[in-house]
């Protein structure tokens, strides 16, 4: 089931995984988090990773970010090792929780990576990225003064502030209620259209994955592996009510089938 890596030109490949595996040693024996993952993420794509808990989707994202080390296979980011890509500031990472530093204002939080990387024109970058996530006017607020959705938007601005071309998002809207999540999903699509970034997005919501993505990677647990890669044929322009169209429902059904197949594999 894993001969699915599309054979596009290497120049287009931002992330390229070949026979990638990752095993965590634990006291109860080894846990296989990723097994034989073959996948290419091309420039400008919006790729969602979907699957139940323990399917390795977050681990895969963390491996791209050099937060975990693969134990077998190869992984390149922008043609280099994940470690070099990290040092080259190839990606911005958005975590499940906003992880804003409570003693910094929103503007200061967005400035954090700029300070660490020693980038100039801080004010311009802060203003531009806060405008992208619709948080202009909240520069001097502290995180606790913002709602959960606004905090997560601030963390997205922070990930965008140093102009990495790749955005890694690990269930960024998982803790938010559905109304806020719908709103942020459509804002994220607009942001993606404006910035033309490559986005890798982990979720466990089928509608979210189908709504956002140009490519959906379905994963299955124990061992974490890719069971299906679905290229979306939805139009680039996606109003929220696209989710009632037959094309959308057909894609969602295929994702659901992929998830179910992954599960029956276990039994």
């Amino acid at each position: 089931m894993t001969e699915l890596a599309p054979s596009s030109q290497d120049a287009m490949a931002v992330v390229r995984a070949q026979n990638l595996g990752l095993t965590f040693p634990t006291n109860d024996g080894d846990v296989i988090a990723l097994s034989d993952v073959n996948l290419t993420i091309n420039k400008g794509e919006f790729v969602s990773f979907i699957g139940p808990s323990g399917c390795g989707k977050t681990t895969f994202l963390r491996t791209i970010a050099d937060l975990e080390q693969p134990t077998s296979g190869t992984l390149t980011v922008n043609g280099t090792t994940p470690s070099d890509a990290r040092l080259n500031r190839a990606y911005g990472y958005v975590f499940q929780a906003p992880a804003l530093y409570p003693w910094r204002t929103i503007a200061q939080n967005v400035a954090l990576p700029l300070e660490i990387m020693g980038l100039s024109d801080k004010a311009e970058r802060i203003a531009r990225t806060l405008e992208l996530v619709n948080l202009t006017g909240f520069e001097n607020k502290y995180p606790w003064q913002l709602s959960g959705g606004m905090q997560q938007r601030a963390s997205i601005a922070r990930a965008l502030s140093f102009d990495a071309d790749l955005l890694l998002m690990d269930e960024p809207f998982g803790a938010l209620d559905e109304i806020v999540r719908d709103h942020l999903n459509s804002e994220l699509l607009k942001l993606w259209a404006r910035t033309r970034k490559t986005i890798a997005f982990v979720t466990h919501s089928i509608p979210e994955a189908v709504y956002l993505s140009t490519k959906i990677v379905v994963m299955s647990p124990r061992p974490g592996r890719v069971t299906d890669i679905i290229e979306s044929d939805l139009p680039a322009e996606r109003p929220l009510d696209i989710r009632e169209t037959p094309e959308f429902l057909r894609l969602a059904a295929r994702v659901r089938d992929g998830l179910r197949a992954g599960h029956s594999y276990e039994e």
Binding site: A65, R86, Y93, L112, I116
Partner: peptide
């Protein structure tokens, strides 16, 4: 500091 706050620093190569 929580794990994700430290991870964040790692992604910046701090």
């Amino acid at each position: 500091p929580e794990a994700i706050q430290l991870d964040l620093m790692h992604t910046y190569s701090a």
